Amino acid sequence: MKENDKRIQIFDIAKGISIVLMTIGRYDFTAIYPYLMEFQNIVMVLKMPTFIFISGYLLSNRLSFKHFLHHKIDGLIKPLISFILSLTVLKIIFYVLVSDVVTFKDAFGYIINLGRYVYNGSFDAINVSFWFIMALFLGQITLKGFLEIKEFNKPKNYIFLTVFFLVLIVLNTIQIKLHWTQYIPIFFTYLLLGYSFKEISTRYLNGTSFFYSNKMLVFPILFFVSQFMLHRFNVKIDFNLAGLHYNYHYLLILSLLGVFTVLYLCRYIEKIPFLNSFFVYCSRASFFILAYHIFIKDVYVVLFDLKSYNPLLHTFLFFSNIIICCLIYRFLKKVPFVRIGFYPIKTIALNDAEIEFLKSKYINRFIPEEIFLDHATR
C-alpha cells in the first residue's frame, strides 16, 4: 500500500466514527446512563460536521456539473429510493407480525403514505435519518454549482456569485422547511470548508501529511479547552443540525475543532487493526447504517427491555445493530439486479445479465452514458 493510500484511510475511519456516533442517540436507554448522556453532549457538536467536512474534502472537481449530478443521483438518490421501498416492505411485515389485529387498510396505508411523504418533502415517518442524505445531496450539488460559477469569466462570475450568496442568506434566514432546502446553507458551509482546506493543505501544508504532523495536537487541546470555558461561563452548546440549531460563530468554530480532533485521534486508531477495519467498514456501509439502524432498533424494542439499567445488554444490542447493517451491506452487494438499486454502478462488478438489463431501452434512458463509461474503465 502506498503511503498516500494509507494516509487517506483516516478519512474513512473518521466517517465511520461519525456514523456510529449518529446512531447512539436513537436509543431510549441513553437517558439511563449519565456518562453516556454527557458523552452525547460532547460529541453532538462534531459527529455530523465530521462526515460533512470530510465529504467536502474528498469532493472531486474534475467532473462537469452534469456528470457530477448524474453520479450523485446514482450514489445518493437512487439508493435512497431503494431504502425507502425496502423499509416500507419491512415495516409492513413487522406490522403483520407484531400486531394483535391486522387490517388490509393499515397495511396498505404504508404504501399510500409514500406519495404523501414525497409531496411534503419529509421521510421522517419511514426513517428520520433520511433528511441527512437529502441535505448532503443538496449541499454537494450547491457546492459544485458554486465551483462552476467561480470559473465563469469576469464580471459574469461576480454577478452570479452575488446572487448565489444572496439566495443562501435568504434560505438561512427564513429556514422554511421545504424539501430539505433549509439545510443547504449549513451543509454548503461545512462542505466548502472541507474542500477549501484540501486546496490549502495541498498548496501549503504538504497535503494529507499535515494530519500526521505534530501541529494537529493543537486541535484537541483547543477543543477541550473551549468546551471547558463555554461550560465555565454558562454558554449553552445548543448544536443540532437536524433541528437547525447552530450558528456561524462560536459553534461553527467549536465544531471545526471537533472535526480536527476526530482526525487527530484517527491517526492512532489507524494503528489498531481491529478498530481500523471496523470503522472503515462502517464508513463503506454508512448509508446502510443510516437506513436500517432505526428499524432494527424498533425490532429490539419488541424483543428486549431497553428501559431498565442493563449496560451489557444495551452495549451488545447497539453494536449488533451496527454489525447487522454492515452485513446487509455486504450481502446485498452480492445479489444480482437487486444491488443495482442500492449501490453506485461504478462500485459493482456487473455480470453480463445486469449489463444487458441496464442497456435495455426502458432502463437505459435513466442511466447516463458517462456512468457506463466510468464503470467500463474501472
Rank of each mutant, 00 (worst) to 15 (best):
G16C: 10
I17G: 00
I19R: 02
V20H: 05
L21D: 05
L21T: 04
M22Q: 06
I24T: 08
G25D: 00
D28F: 08
D28V: 10
T30N: 03
T30K: 00
I32A: 00
P34I: 03
P34E: 06
Y35W: 15
L36K: 03
M37D: 11
Q40E: 13
N41F: 13
V43S: 12
V43H: 07
V45T: 15
V45K: 03
L46C: 14
M48H: 05
P49F: 06
T50N: 01
I52T: 02
G56T: 03
N61D: 11
N61K: 10
R62N: 08
L63M: 14
S64L: 01
S64Q: 04
S64I: 02
S64N: 03
F65D: 09
K66G: 10
H67F: 10
H70R: 02
H71V: 12
K72T: 10
G75S: 15
L76Q: 04
L76T: 01
I77D: 00
I77T: 01
P79A: 06
L80Q: 07
L80E: 09
I81G: 15
I81F: 06
S82T: 14
S86A: 15
S86E: 14
L87E: 01
L87V: 04
V89C: 12
V89M: 09
V89N: 09
L90V: 07
K91E: 08
K91C: 08
K91S: 12
I92S: 10
I92E: 08
V96E: 08
V96K: 08
L97N: 14
L97H: 12
V98W: 04
V101T: 14
F104I: 08
D106R: 14
F108E: 00
Y110Q: 11
G121K: 06
S122N: 14
S122W: 01
S122H: 08
F123I: 04
F123M: 05
A125D: 11
N127A: 00
N127F: 07
V128H: 05
W131D: 06
F132L: 10
I133N: 03
M134P: 00
F137K: 07
F137N: 03
L138E: 05
L138G: 03
G139Q: 14
Q140K: 15
T142I: 02
T142Y: 11
L143S: 00
L143K: 06
K144R: 09
G145N: 11
G145T: 03
F146C: 12
L147P: 01
L147T: 04
E148A: 13
E148R: 05
E148T: 12
I149K: 08
K150L: 04
K150D: 08
K150P: 12
E151F: 05
E151S: 11
E151R: 14
F152H: 10
F152L: 13
K156D: 02
N157A: 06
N157L: 01
I159N: 07
L161C: 03
V163Y: 04
F164I: 01
F164E: 01
